[in-house]
Design a protein around this nucleic acid. Structure first.
Lengths: 204, 204, 204, 204
DNA sequence: TATGAATGAGTCTTCATTCAT
DNA sequence: AATGAATGAAGACTCATTCAT
């Protein structure tokens, strides 16, 4: 039952195209509203070939999820590494990070939504997701440490901070609540995060 | 094609049972993994009757969502109203609120997951959800105001705070990341929220 | 996964019609050349209803096999019971039996062929078939006994005799080998069987 | 669309391998449970090459059937020729023949099952099968004649005898009915055949 | 009102066959 | 001659919805 692992360059490209286009479609329309024919058409291949690379429709989603999460992680890490992290201009730094986050996450709100519901389909999916969150938390904690921003209860704090930023991203990308001023919201978020970090360092 | 609005007491009960049992099933198993037959059986009625009260399967979900959100809102408001809100023992107050939130949200973890993805089915659902968040933000802002806790950029801050608390709830209810100490996380959340409020009042 | 067992008269009729028409089609065209849509059309029902009464296509075949075998058995027993079995006019008796066999088995050559290959699909099918052969052998042996035609090694002999008659039936119904004179063949079969029985009784 | 007839030795070997391995697989698993990919893999060739030697999947089966029947025929004839056929120790002779039949047919039990159903696929197959039976009957009749065992209605009798022996083979090979003693069954078969032949000669 | 049997459009998946290399 | 990736028609099965009773 093991599916072919393509070694030819053309084949690899084809498989990746199926994953990319398929995952995007699924995120846009929902898993159950996306047929294998849709995916095939979008990827420019025949239905048949899909089943040479994947066991079933669900597999496409899973592969997509893995890629998606890897990308987000890498981009995040890159962003953090490129910022000159230190206590001085911390607010500006946080703002830069947030801006890049928003930029990077634009496509992903739908993915996010869809994925959390997909745990009903496959426990693997929610596990992948959960694991990645943890990994992310730890990596970021490491980066902060190596920049001498060591915090008490760092893991927990970082986790909270990630949550705050993701929420903000979602607001920017999707919600567009009237009555909420997003510039202000961003400013408040920065202030909050900044104080969470400063407080720590002050405490020492 | 307008569906009958039941006036008989027995009928109303029947309709409500369909909504309740149906919504629960959907949240537990996912919308697409729940058939109308499942719902009928769970509600103890025939499939046919469902289509006398609802236009289609989606309608059951929408009604369920409305109920669910109303409940959450009411419970939240009740919690806030019952707390003696003031600046003194603000930390204890926040903790109480969080505890009650967790308690209230426990049942609905799956609902949450499922709903966010359901916006693909029906724009109404995401609208209901979004609207409710906003309404909630405003109501809470009001409550705070009437307790003399008036904050600069209150709407935005409240929005952020609600997000932080919801994230924490989710953590408590099912993520259970190893390596994260949830007691500490809660403590940090309280500290953060508290400072967001204090800061405000201090600023004045 | 248990499928509905219909209790309503109309439903039972419908289920039986699916089995009958389905089994006939399968025997005529082969299992894999018969689609569920074919069966539905032939039975005058919708595809959907098939899956309310049967787990899958294979089930229809199995139910059909059971019915078929029961029928053959009952008819055979009836034939034997109605014949006045004794040693005197044994040849005439055997001829009568053979004639009725041919009459009864007319439809079944295809069934026969198809069934033996179906053991590849489902071990149950070959088991049902095998079991029935044995049961038949034993029942016939009983009938002979109760008519005072008791034979040494009766079970084995009866088994052989059944085989000979079945082969003859097939010849009559299908093969139509040129160069073979079927009247003569029948005569020879009668002679052989007759001597198998006589010999026995003479031996005593 | 005439397919290439390979003249190169290597090619001929390849074609034969496809037939052999393909036919075996089909007999083991059933025609419809065997894919052309299975056959290609088993034969150690690519799928594409199959369609250079055969018009379609069915063709492989047909070629296989032809080979199979030729083999059976040749082996049978050989067996008969090697026996020293005469009236004296006829019983021992028959037993030898039966034993060798069983031996020869052992491999082909599945082939037998599958083939009889395959007439639904292609009328050729049943024709090949039918023709071979007749040819066999005639050849055996000839052999008997040339050994001075000439029987009244010989063709018909030989046909019946072949049937009896084949049934016995099947019993030996896989039915394995409990309650049936196969040694006794064999003994009875020998007795029956023997008497069919003797009777004839006695009659003269 | 209420039932649940019946419908059939729509989905995933398979596999014989073709074709670019 | 040979490969095996690619095609797409066809089939089993599901399930929201309808309708006869």
């Amino acid at each position: 039952m093991k599916k072919r692992t393509p070694t030819q360059k053309r084949s690899i490209e084809k498989k990746n195209k199926i994953i990319d286009k398929g995952f995007n479609l699924i995120c846009k329309q929902g898993y159950y509203n996306t047929t294998t024919n849709d995916i095939a058409k979008e990827a420019g291949v025949s239905v048949g070939i899909i089943y040479q690379y994947f066991n079933d429709k669900k597999d496409i989603l899973i592969e997509g999820v893995k890629n998606y999460i890897n990308n987000i992680q890498n981009q995040t890490i890159t962003i953090l590494n490129n910022e000159n992290l230190n206590k001085k201009n911390i607010n500006k730094t946080i703002e830069n990070i947030i801006d890049k986050f928003i930029e990077t996450h634009t496509i992903s709100k739908e993915a996010h939504e869809e994925l959390s519901a997909m745990s009903h389909i496959d426990k693997n999916i929610s596990k992948i997701y959960k694991d990645s969150e943890l990994e992310m938390t730890e990596k970021i904690t490491q980066i902060l440490k190596s920049n001498n921003i060591e915090i008490e209860n760092n893991k927990e704090k970082v986790h909270i901070i990630i949550g705050i930023i993701e929420n903000l991203c979602h607001e920017f990308i999707y919600h567009k609540h009237k009555n909420i001023d997003y510039k202000i919201m961003k400013k408040e978020v920065i202030k909050t995060i900044s104080s969470m970090i400063k407080e720590v360092n002050d405490e020492r």
